[in-house]
């Protein structure tokens, strides 16, 4: 760019001449013409401002879709489209050394009753037509999870509220668990629906994210078994979604083609909630 090189090499006097020319750039008009322009421009400005304010109000008065104005729901879906097209579900999120693990807050208690009796725990696995494929009691579930290759990994957990932590999770890869049902569930299913024992917290996650090797059915936090507050005896741990999707105390796992209900998506949040 010659203008750039001119600037770098010009003398002080040349600079003064350039600045003077820059200041004088452009036409000069009569006051009569200025008045005409002024009227027109301020009128245009007023119309544009009114349109902007009306538009902003109109957005907030749109019909709600999951407690969010439908046009903003479209905005969420646009983001989802962009990142899904770029293939973020199949990428691997960064992992960290075990020594870099941090503790993690207990943030969500939805679906976790105070006096939950672990011995009453039951895991139900359902197929595409809502049919029960298998049920497990606490010991059965633990035996099942332990039958898969065990993962011990530190990944970033990001809360939709803004904080993040690097917990160390232990458990099985969900994809390994899912392959157990390969004969019963067509590989084209769209989502996995998961619920707590009392069904008061529930999430839906797309198949691609669930089959990412970093999406875990976790039984351990740090080197310990999960505490009740962190989702004992079984929870989802995935670095590919905000923490709202990493449901605690999973009691139902259902493969489905329909997009499942999702607790927070019904309350104004993004359904996808991915990275």
């Amino acid at each position: 760019m010659s203008e750039l090189s001119r600037r770098l090499t010009e003398s002080a006097d040349e600079r003064l001449a350039r600045l003077a020319a820059e200041a004088a750039e452009g036409p000069t008009i009569s006051t009569a013409e200025y008045s005409k322009r002024s009227r027109r421009s301020f009128l245009t400005g007023a119309v544009a401002a009114a349109a902007g304010i009306a538009g902003f109000r109109a957005i907030q008065n749109r019909p709600l879709d999951g407690r969010t104005p439908d046009v903003l729901r479209k905005g969420y879906e646009w983001n989802e489209f962009v990142w899904e097209t770029l293939g973020s579900q199949s990428k691997l999120a960064p992992t960290y050394a075990l020594a870099d693990a941090t503790s993690i807050r207990v943030n969500g208690r939805l679906g976790l009753p105070d006096n939950y009796d672990l011995s009453t725990y039951e895991l139900t696995v359902k197929g595409i037509n809502d049919e029960v494929l298998e049920t497990f009691d606490l010991e059965g579930m633990r035996t099942l999870i332990n039958s898969f290759p065990q993962v011990d990994v530190v990944m970033e957990h990001k809360c939709i509220e803004g904080w993040s932590a690097k917990p160390r999770w232990g458990g099985a890869v969900f994809a390994d668990f899912a392959s157990r049902y390969a004969d019963d569930v067509p590989s084209t299913y769209g989502y996995v629906a998961m619920e707590t024992s009392d069904a008061r917290y529930y999430v839906g996650v797309d198949r691609a994210t669930m089959l990412n090797r970093q999406s875990l059915l976790a039984t351990k936090l740090g080197a310990e078994d999960l505490s009740l507050a962190h989702g004992a005896p079984l929870r989802l741990a995935t670095p590919h979604k905000y923490g709202i999707k990493s449901i605690k105390q999973i009691a139902t796992i259902r493969f489905t083609n329909e997009r499942p209900d999702d607790y927070w998506a019904e309350r104004g949040y993004t359904y996808w909630a991915g990275f």
Binding site: A17, A21, E25, P27, T28, I29, S30, T31, E33
Partner: peptide
């Protein structure tokens, strides 16, 4: 170097007395 472009129909500029104009910004 840029030369100030004056409006062609600028009759007011020929006056010698103080007057008001509007310049491009």
């Amino acid at each position: 170097p840029s030369v100030p472009v004056m409006a062609a129909d600028e009759s007011a500029t020929s006056h010698a007395e103080p007057h008001s104009v509007a310049s491009f910004k």
